[in-house]
Design a protein around this nucleic acid. Structure first.
Lengths: 342, 342
DNA sequence: TGCGTTCGTCGAAGCCCATCGACGCTGACA
DNA sequence: TGTCAGCGTCGATGGGCTTCGACGAACGCA
């Protein structure tokens, strides 16, 4: 194994000089810097991570805790995880993958052992039990999702409330009067997943403000569940002319079922999906959708932990942040003015 | 920060005794062991990861390199990643997430710096450029997927060849004569993704052996692409009575399209999906499918790296392994005896 | 009773790097 | 020409842990 001392000897300087050349924390003449770089290349030197962590009191690792089982769209989660990893690398950091099932102890473990300098939590519950640990140990952290009380924390999330409102606005603007909202399964609402509730609230408030009549129905996301949900909706409100779907699994079945029931989208029924753009694009007709950027979410979360890690190292008080990413409604082919009443 | 010395002092023993008590590498009397455990609990001691890595020459971290962008089913990938993480924890290891775009350099980086003790590679290409790095540095590694030349490596993968064969067998057994295989997009075959080619080979060979006429068509996985693919198949071989689909995105559209064209599944047309069971279950009718366990895949990969890490530490020569996980064909509601010729 | 073991514990020597204080040297300025 | 600032470099120290060799105590056996 090649060490810093080997490099120093090869370059004819002292070990500390090599260290400073690498970290840039003291100025080094161009000449020696060149010699050192040459030595590093010649010997194929890679600083030892453990030693660096020990001496520098920084592991250059952040932990990312992902949900083990989730009702949320898995590809979306993955996209965020990857965005986090890529963004972290740009800060010279690596990402340690933790699963939800380790719970608060997992956070404790990686933080207390100095394995990770900071933590990013995904799938945050309103009363998330990992949050107290963060406070207790003063762990630099960023949450993707909003707990009830975000004081002392940095959080990023999609602005689901606005997402819901955008849907209501768009449909109201097209002249629809009776609208149905097809959401996630009951379990999601029962465990108070923030995103589901907030979308619904945003939609409800705007719908009421714009004089829409609306129905919310939960749905498990399978073909059969969607069929049942749709049947109930049409039985309860036969005049329904538009659907908002916030459940990736229900989109395909809904379109098939509408088609099967003789309804053309968008002439007879409009459909808005709250889902990633790629998904919206791959249906036929291509779906008008509301989505928010996942990549930026991940990047922002990383920026937030980094800021907190730096603040901690510098002894500064980190400032709380609460960022909601604006969603965007893209009009495609699945929404049209409401059909005239028969 | 609480250190091992603090614990030792509190327990009235020496530091090395505490270390041995924790690692179990030398016998410690029950009495002192108790005192030490009590001290650890009282002081809330967590061993410093960096120091441990430095002194022990093991980081207790394995790196998992996941594809950045992939045509493969993302939830499947995620399931494997999570299985790896959970399995690693059971060995006292954590998982570092790397993305494909770091390429060979990424492997080099984490291995040479001692950041990771071993590496698991996903989405392995037939001529994967990361493999030479593994050989050059002697990095303990396990591949999920098969390269052309697996000598000196440990690999696990699904037995796609058998998966293809199972499909052909099942359909031949039901009396089908004309069968279509709807695969991934051309890009997947062009970059020689092993899984796509092997499935096709297995299917082709068995189909020929059983006297099936068959057609392979690639498909991008969108609704429109599926529509085009199906149209071409029916134009070329109007007598086609069964479909094998190896493309998660095409399943829903295919079912809708068959239904729309007046074909009932399974009476008029049989469908087998090569996909995870959960997916197969959520369509209507529930699909006969061929799937292989993802969780075991992840676990086996972890076992393989661990074996190699241990071998390296003990100076033993690790043995190569090549495990193919047997797929299982589950008969559900989408396959039936071939309809009589009209 | 004497000897050789085994068991339990200790002290010290690293592991590799970051950082601090010190020091000689060069150049600017008075 | 003398003085004072940097600038560039060095040596020493420390960070928390693992591991090796050593050593006293307790024990078995002859």
């Amino acid at each position: 194994m090649v060490t810093l001392v080997d490099v120093a000897r090869y370059a004819g300087v002292s070990a500390s000089t090599v260290s400073y050349a690498l970290s840039g924390k003291r100025s080094i003449s161009q000449k020696t810097r060149d010699r050192i770089e040459q030595a590093i290349a010649a010997l194929d030197y890679h600083p030892n991570a453990g030693a660096r962590a020990l001496a520098g009191k920084r592991s250059h690792i952040i932990a990312l805790m992902v949900p083990l089982h989730t009702e949320v769209h898995v590809p979306t989660m993955m996209e965020i995880a990857i965005a986090v990893t890529v963004a972290a690398r740009e800060h010279g950091y690596d990402v340690l993958l933790l699963t939800n099932d380790e719970g608060p102890d997992g956070v404790q473990r990686v933080a207390a052992s100095g394995l990770a300098d900071g933590v990013i939590l995904m799938d945050v519950r309103l009363d998330d039990e990992r949050v107290p640990v963060l406070h207790a140990r003063g762990v630099p952290a960023a949450l993707i999702g909003l707990p009830v009380d975000p004081t002392g924390l940095s959080c990023v999330d999609h602005d689901f409330t606005t997402a819901g409102a955008l849907c209501a606005d768009h449909l109201a603007g097209l002249g629809h009067r009776d609208v149905a909202f097809i959401g996630y399964g009951n379990a999601v609402y029962q465990r108070h997943a923030g995103y589901a509730e907030r979308t619904l609230t945003g939609f409800r408030e705007r719908a009421e403000a714009r004089g829409l009549r609306f129905l919310h129905r939960s749905c498990e996301g399978t073909y059969e569940s969607t069929a049942g949900t749709l049947a109930r909706i049409l039985a309860d409100r036969p005049d329904t002319t538009a659907f908002v779907v916030q459940n990736e699994g229900a989109i395909g079945p809904l379109l098939s079922l509408l088609r099967a029931s003789g309804r053309t989208v968008p002439e007879d029924a409009s459909v808005i999906a709250i889902c990633p753009d790629v998904l919206a694009e791959q249906h036929s007709p291509r779906l008008t959708s509301v989505s928010s950027p996942k990549k930026e979410l991940g990047q922002l979360a990383v920026d937030q932990v980094m800021a907190r890690i730096d603040a901690l190292a510098a002894g500064r008080e980190p400032k709380d942040e609460l960022l909601l990413m604006a969603p965007e409604l893209v009009v495609r082919e699945s929404t049209a003015p409401a059909p005239r009443r028969s």
